[in-house]
Design a protein around this nucleic acid. Sequence first.
DNA 1: TAGATTGTTAATCGATTAACAATC
DNA 2: TAGATTGTTAATCGATTAACAATC
Lengths: 214, 214
Amino acid sequence: MSEQNKVSLPVIKRLPKYYRYISTMQKNGVVKVSSSELARIMGTTASQVRQDFNCFGGFGQQGIGYNVNVLLEEISRLLFSENKLDTILIGTGRLGRAISGYLTAEAQGYRLIGVFDKAKDEIGQTICGTQIRDVRELEAFCKKNRPQVAVLCVPSQSARELAPVLVELGIQGFWNFSHYDLSVDYDNIIVENVHLSDRLMSLGYRVRNNISKL
Amino acid sequence: MSEQNKVSLPVIKRLPKYYRYISTMQKNGVVKVSSSELARIMGTTASQVRQDFNCFGGFGQQGIGYNVNVLLEEISRLLFSENKLDTILIGTGRLGRAISGYLTAEAQGYRLIGVFDKAKDEIGQTICGTQIRDVRELEAFCKKNRPQVAVLCVPSQSARELAPVLVELGIQGFWNFSHYDLSVDYDNIIVENVHLSDRLMSLGYRVRNNISKL
DNA sequence: TAGATTGTTAATCGATTAACAATC
DNA sequence: TAGATTGTTAATCGATTAACAATC
């Protein structure tokens, strides 16, 4: 995979956006699109569109443009995969429940195989068809089922305690909703942080100071 | 406020992180910190810390470092404000409920003044002490109460329909959980997008291609 | 062939990092 | 005064944008 070295994080983070827009186009029966048209719709530049696609070898035809079906197929191939990522979720509070619903019902490329909490009254309940397990079973469960991804919907102190255990158990990627910054303490793991409170704070700053331009 | 022009978006997005770390320090009784120590703890560089703080005029003392109390006070002053932002939330599905709980209980600087849904069986229910209103009352409610921020926890089609109405009603900032890209269609509004599915897709790409480094 | 549009190289822009003078 | 550490200017780095040759 010499592919990956050329691809910067900003490009990777834009892939889902391309996926969204191109999916819609396909649904609407659009057959072909040029980089400039796509850029116009997405609010970016034609240069960026072409640069981005060329990180992965280039999906277009000179003089013609991009075939929507081909484009969607290539981007789907990049983002998804036949072998889904086995995923566990820890913390079944309101947010945890919302996220497990999403993971079960909508998320492509993931399979939610276990849900954990430490609260006695949560354990045993079923959410989205999965029974909530005692977090004390986590280690045994992971050793047996080898999940690759962990979703953390717990307070930051719990996240801090869970992190070394989960890393040790072979978790490669974290979807982190806690305030704890995993990436500061661990180098070789992959983390997507969703620090909701951070986003809300910077929104507030921007609203009060009227900073709209990205 | 000549302050604001010098401050780039990356800096603004880092403010909450500073706030988190410095709050913890204060709780732990730390009195003084240097840019290099703070950088070490936060996983960044001393240069960046000093540059960031100096966007706002500089909070430190040459030769000494930064006083934790002063630092926290200054950053709090930037992020929060005595006059809270009046906020409405639309969409009371699982995610909407989780977010309204968060807005009511934990979020600083915001006041949740209205919650809306279109489903008959949701309307009239109470979540976190707020009664769910019919989305058809939205216009009248906004004209009367003038909220500044709207939280969108609805599907993208609903978001697309709501956006022009809300902008017209004077909403300045959006916390957008839908897949619809508000910022493409509207220029002068402030949007914090939380595209959960996007983040999950890019996490998957990174896990499968083992791209950990930020 | 002429027009269109990509793939790719070059130029620009902005953010991060390094260096250092100011000063506590 | 010497040591430490900021504030601030300069250098570097990386990402975005522009330009253009290749080619359908």
